[in-house]
Amino acid sequence: MNIPLVLNRRNRILLKELTKTDFKLRYQGSVLGYLWALLRPLMMFAILYIVFAKLLKIGGDIPHYPVYLLCGTTMWSFFTECTSQGIQAVVARGDLLRKISFPKYIVVVSATLTAVINMLINLVVIIIFALINGVSPDWSWLLTIPAILELYILSLGIAFLLGSINVKYRDITSIWDVFVQALFYTIPIIYPISMVADTSTTAAKIILLNPIAQTIQDIRFSLITHDSITTWNYISNPLVITPIIITLSILIFGALSFRKKSKFFAEEV
């Protein structure tokens, strides 16, 4: 994997075609087809909204709470889809790896790009909902770009790291599924972070050091309401850069592990 060769012509063609195929196959044979890319997260949101906002009456004091919630669930789905598809990519594309020679990271990237496309479609829906809800467009909307990029880099790093182990030990897929379930409750998606902050500021600060929580709060801050608590406005010591450090270390460590193990993928998969 020489750096100059990373995106040469052939690899670009491959990446494009594999991503297209992944996306097509995902919704193959369903009546509503691509519409599911939209419907699934919207339905998930409807369930969470009814349970948490209407029945449990959480989040009443947050402006535009429904969009705020939708934004959180969408970004969370993006993270879970990206990681679970990315982790399984090498195994899922084993037939290709055994028959042609190409940089193996391409299958991981193409699997995660499908999640990126889904997320971008949903982002459009969020923006429409936000406008309907009375959020006015703002230059700060542009700040969602680096936040989404950070979340993607984190997901890609996890996909490389665990995906390279998953080739030999398929247990990783199951472990990750359970882990993600647990992780969900540690991140302020369905509950507002202010609820935690009311009882313990330390707990809230620890939660905000998680890069997933940090990026989701950043996106909410820049897109929906500046009242959102973010890592940057809530933590005032040098620890504030922890999420960035975690993200970059996982990417570097993941890429190195993947590169080292990828030589044997064709034999082991």
Partner: peptide, 18 residues
């Protein structure tokens, strides 16, 4: 290589070509 039974002949030609 990469032929997928769920895709049409046309789609498979482009995929295999890639």
């Amino acid at each position: 290589v990469g032929f997928n039974p769920e895709l049409t002949g046309r789609e498979n030609v482009y995929l295999n070509g890639a």
